[in-house]
Design a protein around this nucleic acid. Structure first.
Lengths: 335, 335
DNA sequence: GCGGAAAGTGGAAACGTTTCCACGTGACCT
DNA sequence: AGGTCACGTGGAAACGTTTCCACTTTCCGC
């Protein structure tokens, strides 16, 4: 591989001049520019990224950690970040966790990995992080933002939907549609956002005279499979509820799948409601009524904030983008 | 950030000794090891990845390009690669394309980007690449493998399912189930693998006395939305076919969704068959009958081959893992 | 014609590693 | 006692950039 030295030699200029042409800053004569460009072409020169990072201490790269590669939830968020980032001329390196159970550890390692790789800033999406974990990340890489995890100490770097309000909205939607006997499939215990939305859900019930303690509950792990299992369990325990709220759309899809096979009409006999508003939720039969969380927008704003932090940009950052119930056909209005 | 020099100074040893302790090779006294370890701890030293890459010319990192971030198809493949890679102690950097239309250009740029980043090898998944494109990639980074794109010149580095055989299997399955009037929704023109599976599909029809020219055809772009649109178009044109083959599962899911809303019973009035065997295909209502392509296995084998290429490992590499029809409930046996 | 600013230039130094070479020390053999 | 060997060690050189400083030339205004 040709180096900048070779380029300089071939173009008959000094090292500095060659570098300036490549970087496009400093003043260089038209003639020198032409010669250097030609040499680059001829030698197929490509600057060494490693050498550059070593020298400049900057990589024009943002690191992103998400807990899972597969599944339908995280990738649209990555997509949103990626698109915005490319538009600003920077790059993205992603690291993934292995499973939701190991999310905490994975995120910690991921943040280290990405920092080591010379990322100028980090977007970490991991609800399971403890405050100490966050401090630890901050210590090694002060330029970071958190997605879906709030922290009093780093409040301005936290970007999350208002899960509590969104959970409440889900409950209200179901109650307004006339449902009174409700069941829920929660997310895993480690998921702080699940806790929040469930709290919101339960709190909203009071206004309709429903005792939260009488809610039929099952716990899943956000996977479709656990949605199937949870639904079966709930039904076997006591099938008298008329509406089922799932803590995310993938579990709701599992529920729909189970109900379809069990011959339970949706929404005829049982209504199903999801959460998140992933793209696929539109494709189920019947189309899933869900709470649309503006994940893409939230992620984009988090990125903008990070860009401001890292490169002194002045991108607009919006917070508090509201969630809204997306009425489709899996919830019936009764009573 | 502390450097290895600081560590050496603090531990009271020379640069070389410190480096040897960190790398874990060469011979160093117990005492020196202890002192260096202590210094590392105290200074919170972390080696600079950039400096290391610059010096060694190796990064223990494999670059992967996939055409799309979002969607359900590519991420399980990434997951499979990632898991295997981590198990071997190396790392992965992923680059994504923006859309299937720009796949070719995206892949070219992605390969350059990943090479520039000092990846020791590349996995490029892009069916739309031309031979010249592949040459160009090879020129800059001779250590690469191709996923889902065959090339005579680099035959041993190509890992793909036998789309033609798989397409034929789909046709046979439908015909054996008694279907004679068939419709298909193809993938985009740029997709060589779509072409192949369609050819296989058509070729197999002859044995059942079906004229391939009489096939009802629509073209999609592999997205669920295009599956919806294609189904509607087909139905409006001439709804006399009894089975619909979609070139991938996502379009099949779109089809199912459309049919559900249009009140067309599946498989009662119309059978639907998918292709790929993505995880979600199990969750549709009714569960989707599809051709299971062993993508994860293919990807893992491609990776193993690449690892052999890059690091002289001797991992086993299997080729020709057969696809198989996954019978579920969206195809009826008739006649 | 002269002073001084501006434009253009070359090359040394620095970024943080690893590798290689040279050297000292003690153990072991003969 | 002398020779060889292995082990442990320190530090210079190299990897490929960018940045900074010093220098020359050109141009402009007086």
């Amino acid at each position: 591989m040709a180096t900048i030295k070779d380029v300089a030699k071939r173009a008959g200029v000094g090292l500095g001049t060659a570098s300036r042409v490549i970087a496009g800053n400093g003043s260089v004569s038209e003639d020198a520019i032409r010669r250097v460009r030609k040499a680059i072409e001829e030698l197929k020169f490509r600057p060494s990224h490693a050498a550059r990072v070593l020298q400049k201490g900057q990589s024009q790269t943002i690191g992103v950690f998400v807990p899972l590669v597969h599944g339908s939830f995280y990738t649209p968020i990555l997509h949103a970040i990626y698109t915005t980032l490319r538009a600003s001329g920077r790059h993205m390196v992603v690291d993934f966790g292995q499973s939701l159970e190991s999310e905490r550890q994975d995120a910690l390692e991921g943040a280290e990995f990405l920092t080591d790789r010379g990322c100028d800033g980090l977007i970490v999406m991991a609800t399971a992080l403890t405050s100490a974990d966050i401090e630890r990340i901050a210590e090694r890489q002060p330029r970071f933002v958190l997605l879906n995890r709030s922290s009093a100490r780093f409040q301005d770097r936290c970007f999350n939907p208002d899960h509590r309000a969104a959970g409440a909205a889900a409950a209200r939607a179901l109650c307004e549609a006339g449902h009174r006997r409700l069941a829920v499939i929660e997310g895993p215990k480690t998921s702080r956002d699940n806790t929040l939305r469930m709290r919101g859900f339960e709190e909203a019930l009071g206004a309709y005279g429903i005792d939260a303690a009488r809610l039929a509950r099952a716990r899943g792990d956000f996977s479709p499979e656990s949605g199937r299992a949870g639904t079966r369990e709930l039904l076997e325990r006591d099938g008298s509820f008329t509406a089922l709220f799932c803590a995310n759309d993938e579990m709701a899809m599992g529920a729909l799948s189970y109900l379809g096979q069990a011959g339970v009409a949706v929404p005829g006999r049982l209504s199903v409601m999801g959460y998140d508003g992933i793209d696929l939720s539109e494709l189920t039969v019947p189309p899933l009524t869900t709470v649309l969380i503006p994940w893409r927008e939230i992620a984009t704003n988090a990125l903008n904030h990070l860009l401001n932090l890292c490169y002194g940009s002045a991108l607009p950052v919006e917070r508090d983008i509201p969630a809204q119930v997306l009425w489709r056909e899996s919830v019936a209005r009764i009573g």
